[in-house]
Design a binder for these strands. Structure first.
Ligand code: FES
Ligand code: FES
Lengths: 141, 141
DNA sequence: TATAAACCTGACTAAAATAGTCAAGTATAT
DNA sequence: ATATACTTGACTATTTTAGTCAGGTTTATA
């Protein structure tokens, strides 16, 4: 199981953004340079973040992106949701009564994976962007 | 982030095995049929499980595999380890002082991913094969 | 009002990882 | 003897990921 770059980059980029606390827009070019992420890839990612109203865009020269909410209100869950980074541990369709083996009962391990999925999602539910920047400025002192 | 089939199958197959409690060997063919997993693929997986002494093989006709330890002593951690299913959340090399961005400090999100990795691994550390079969026989009653 | 900075969009592609398959064995209970 | 089942290594197809590329549109400012 591993975290994909898309999810990682989304959080990295937003953490970078969050340090500016909704004052002036930050251009993707700057984030790209600071965080070492391809500009074109960032654009894909921010397009999704904007659609889910996590960031706001400011077009034109001197433009960029600004957080659309307080950093405390942006959970990792929201970010991952926006960029379609999802935690998937079961193989079967959850709604279906059928198991991953094609049989009419769930497999031996279904419950286990379901618990695992919840366990991981709880982590994402508890962490906000604010936790990240706070953490980081503490370390800087 | 998703669980791979290799990890899933390893646990499914061992759960199937565990129901027979070290009495007589279970053939991969039977597991293959019951769990709907390719026989050839199972062979790859069990080769690894055997090397890490999680199962024992019994060759020849009527042969198969048997758990090598008590189901309570086989943690998910051990299983995943054996089949090289690893949790990887950070992008950088952990031992290195360098960050994933190539810079000389760890990136903004490094600590977060590290926490996540621990969080997930804790789950695997807490669950044993026994929990699985116990759970299942309870449900059967 | 020209221009350059920056957002915006969709299609395309290379590389890596995954999930197997296939072939050719060896051991052993019956 | 022989069929069952483990053993091993190489090969391959599919899918997913991680981008690239080529074209835009908007707008501050000189
Ligand atoms: S994972 Fe849901 S039935 Fe197997
Ligand atoms: S993940 Fe370790 S430095 Fe970025």
């Amino acid at each position: 199981m591993k975290l994909t770059s898309k999810g990682r980059y989304a959080v990295m980029a937003l953490a970078d953004l969050a340090r500016f606390d909704n004052v002036n827009p930050v251009s993707l070019r700057d984030i790209s340079l600071r965080q070492g992420i391809s500009l074109d890839y960032l654009e894909q990612i921010f397009s999704k973040l904007r659609k889910k109203e996590i960031v706001q865009s400011v077009r034109g020269i001197q433009g960029g992106y600004v957080l659309n909410k307080n950093a405390k209100e942006i959970k990792l869950t929201n970010i991952f949701d926006a960029v379609d980074e999802k935690v998937k541990t079961v193989q079967c369709k959850k709604e279906s009564k059928k198991g991953c083996n094609g049989k009419s009962t769930k497999c031996l391990t279904h419950n286990l994976w379901d618990e695992l999925e919840n366990h991981i999602n709880n982590f994402f539910e508890e962490k906000s962007l604010y936790d990240l920047v706070k953490d980081n400025s503490e370390r800087r002192i």
